[in-house]
Amino acid sequence: MLRKQKIEKKKKNKKPVVGFYAITGCQGCLLSVLFNEDKLFDLTKLIDIKAFPFIKQLEGAKEFDVVFMEGLVAKKNDLKELKEIRAKTKVLVAIGACACTGGIPAFRNFMKEDNYKHLVYHKAMHLTDMKPTPIDKYVKVDYYLPGCPPDKNEILTFIKDFVLGKKPEIYKKPVCFDCRKEGNPCLLDSGKLCLGPITRGNCGAVCPSGGLECWGCRGPTDDANIKTMMSLLEKKGFDVSHIKKRMKSFVGLKLAKKGIDTYEQEY
């Protein structure tokens, strides 16, 4: 074998260097990765994990092939860390609702400061030094694995696709598709405010299957018909501001882009 070929082969067999990171968030997304308990050993044979907040021994890397980033930018340090990581990462994957769409922490954008400040932030003022936003406001995001929490299988499938050199498949079907496959009754028919029709699926419709309406944690589908969804819910007797609040719970800032007005428009 030629030397060049040998190097090529070595390169080919090299496991991708992967990092898991978290900025402001609850670290539940990273927990979802760990929920693949019985697969973790196999996983370490596929990828070279160089960073994971729960594993103190790992010290990061100079360069990453893939980084899974949990959390959103809510303070100056988040932004600094995010930019540093982006600079040394080939493929950046936003993982979870906070990173992808803003999630619960971004709901602060839709509240009046006087209403919450004295309750939550009086001890942690550093948390209010930036407007909480999903990470793609500041850096390029290559892929999104949404959800609060994200789906553990979706994360594994992504890694398998990546290692195989396949273009990772992004699930575009709405939650209703999953829900109908599960054979559920439609909660809209029983007067519940279900956002399944406009929300990206692949969660297996866990909420509707358990009788709980979909709150839209996985973000809107590419072709979400939000206008019709609004008028349908209005006709069902829901108050407009209630519908908007619900829609904004996990994805408010992204909806603003889609034409749903928010208290603060700019994003």
């Binding site: 709405p174 209703c176 109908r180 439609c186 399944g196 029709p197 072709d223 018909n225 019709t228 969804m229």
Partner: peptide, 8 residues
């Protein structure tokens, strides 16, 4: 216009 693309 009324279609939500829900696939039901």
């Amino acid at each position: 216009d009324l279609c939500l693309g829900c696939t039901s």
